[in-house]
Simulated scan of single mutants.
Amino acid sequence: MIKTWLVAMALLILMTGCGSKEVEEYNKPAEYWYEKMVTSVSNGNLEKADSYFSSLQSEHIGSPFLAEATMIMAQAHMAHDEYLLAEHFLDEYIRRYATPEGREFAEFLKVKAKFLALPNPGRDQGLIDETLKGVDTFKMNYPYSIYISQVNTMETQLQLARGVLDEQIAQLYERLDKPKGALYYRSMAPVTWIKPDEVVNANIPWYREMFEGDGSSSWYDFMIPKTRSVISMEDNESK
Rank of each mutant, 00 (worst) to 15 (best):
M37V: 02
A76K: 01
R103Q: 15
M140V: 14
N45K: 12
K114F: 06
A49E: 02
F108W: 08
A67W: 03
K139F: 09
K21V: 08
N141G: 04
L116N: 14
T70W: 01
A86R: 04
A113V: 02
E59H: 05
G134T: 02
F138A: 02
A67M: 10
N27T: 06
L84H: 08
K21C: 06
K133A: 12
S42H: 13
T99Q: 09
K21L: 13
M37D: 03
M71K: 06
S42I: 10
I72L: 14
V111H: 00
L46R: 01
A67D: 11
E24V: 13
D91F: 09
K133F: 05
T99H: 07
I128K: 03
I94Y: 04
L66A: 00
T70C: 08
K110F: 00
A76Y: 01
L132Y: 02
Y83Q: 11
Y83G: 03
R95Q: 14
E47R: 12
V111R: 01
S149N: 14
F115S: 00
E25P: 04
Y52V: 06
P29W: 07
V135E: 00
L84W: 08
D91H: 08
A69N: 05
G44V: 15
E24H: 09
M37Y: 03
P121I: 04
M37L: 07
T99F: 10
N152D: 14
G44R: 09
I94L: 09
G62N: 15
H88Q: 13
T39V: 15
M78P: 00
N45R: 10
E92A: 11
E22Y: 07
T137N: 11
D124H: 08
L90W: 03
L84M: 11
F53D: 01
A74C: 05
M140K: 14
L46A: 07
A117R: 05
T153W: 12
R123N: 09
I128G: 00
P119W: 12
I146K: 15
P29G: 10
K36E: 14
E31D: 14
S40L: 11
Y142M: 01
S149F: 10
V41M: 01
Y142T: 02
H77C: 03
N43T: 14
V111I: 06
F138I: 00
E107W: 04
E82N: 15
A69M: 01
D91V: 15
K28F: 06
R96W: 11
R95K: 15
A76W: 01
Q150C: 07
S55M: 13
L116M: 14
F89A: 08
L132D: 00
E101K: 12
M140H: 10
E22H: 09
K36Y: 06
R123C: 08
I72D: 07
H77K: 08
F105W: 09
Y83C: 05
Y97V: 05
P119V: 09
K110V: 02
R123H: 07
R95E: 13
A117Y: 06
I128A: 02
I148T: 06
A117W: 02
F65I: 04
S145M: 07
E25N: 09
T99G: 06
